[in-house]
Nucleic acid binder design. Structure first.
Length: 325
DNA sequence: TCGGCCCTGGGG
DNA sequence: CCCCAGGGCCGA
């Protein structure tokens, strides 16, 4: 479900609702998410003030401040014991010692069907509700995920996690350096679809927007990266940016489960050119949209606007008829 | 590099 | 019943 535009929408929705709030409690369901929320984290997060909400690739990051920011800090400093579970004492690195820059944070991934929303406390509970963060304003932040491919985790050291994530994730699509991108694409025989889905090449693109970007660029998703000209790489880079930007403006695509942070569905599903439109007419030339399998995922493309481009004679001849209109 | 797997639910 | 689905991770 959630690719960059959807995650960005959730983040933008949540930010004003969460910033400055305090987590007053956490509760979880029995069924486990892909990366299980450890019970001890509930105590860690309780009492924390939410400083901000961010996104990195398809990950949601919720920055937490030091616990107990109340106007009357206990003299002993470490006096505050969390209620309930005293398991797994949190071992912070330099936390509280005057802002050493290693505050904790929550990291959430929505997987395929995750929903991360703020609702009034006590609102009817849907099924597949996995985590609930109670807030100090009679609202709660809920993580629901039917397929349970999503995750929520607590990290004591924000900087350490960011370093780790930056080692595993490529650049954000809006910061793509043309030279970097040309090199990443032209330096491999992997096809475009696989490249775009690889979070290490570009962070945040998923199946929907990979197909949409290839369409906008007029490139067949099965093309090997090394077969692209520098110019085609630039076109692809521009297309990625354009598609994601437009999708964010429409609050993402709701194929089935996706909703933003306030529970609203997206709108970009109505503007998709090829994704999910097998056999329907290409918006540009009316040719029936085709589906193929690349990198284990379905690729949707227009056989005419996105030719396989037989360079130097092999492969199939795509051009045959004179014209279609 | 790729297939399989992790899950649940919806559609044919 | 079977197959499919926005993602990521693991091992062959």
């Amino acid at each position: 479900m959630p690719e960059l535009p959807e995650v960005e929408t959730v983040v933008r929705d949540l930010r004003p609702m969460l910033a400055g709030r305090t987590v007053t409690g956490v509760r979880q369901s029995k069924s486990k998410l892909r990366r299980p929320w450890k019970p001890a984290w509930s105590a860690d997060a309780t009492g924390a003030r939410i400083e901000g909400v961010r996104r990195r690739g398809k990950w949601i990051l919720i920055d937490l401040g030091p616990k107990d920011p109340s106007p009357t800090p206990p003299p002993g400093g470490e006096g505050l014991k969390t209620k309930g579970s005293a398991l797994a004492p949190p071992s912070f690195l330099g936390k509280g010692a005057g802002g050493l820059g290693s505050s904790p944070l929550l990291r959430v991934h929505l997987g395929m069907t995750g929903q991360f929303t703020v609702v009034p406390a006590g609102a009817p509970e849907p099924d597949h509700l996995h985590l609930v963060f109670a807030l100090d304003n009679k609202k709660e932040l809920r993580l629901r995920d039917p397929r349970r491919f999503g995750s929520a985790e607590y990290f004591a050291n924000r900087n350490a996690l960011e370093t780790e994530m930056n080692a595993e994730l490529g650049p954000e699509p809006f910061d793509l350096d043309p030279d970097y991108f040309r090199g990443a694409v032209r330096g491999t025989r992997r096809n475009l679809k696989a490249l775009l889905l690889d979070q290490k090449v570009v962070a945040g693109v998923g199946n929907i927007y990979a197909d949409e970007a290839c369409f906008r660029a007029g490139l067949h998703p099965g093309r090997p990266g090394k077969s692209l000209s520098p110019d085609e790489c630039d076109r692809l880079r521009d297309s990625i940016e354009a598609v994601l930007t437009r999708a964010i403006e429409s609050r993402g695509s709701t194929i089935r489960d996706y909703v933003g942070g306030s529970g609203l569905r997206g709108g970009f599903q109505n503007e998709l050119a090829v994704y999910g439109r097998a056999d329907e007419p290409c918006p540009t030339c009316e040719t029936a949209i085709a589906v193929a399998r690349h990198a284990g995922r379905a690729s949707h493309y227009c056989p005419r606007c996105q030719p396989v481009k037989s360079k130097a004679g092999r492969s199939k001849v795509v051009k045959s008829k004179n014209r279609a209109p």
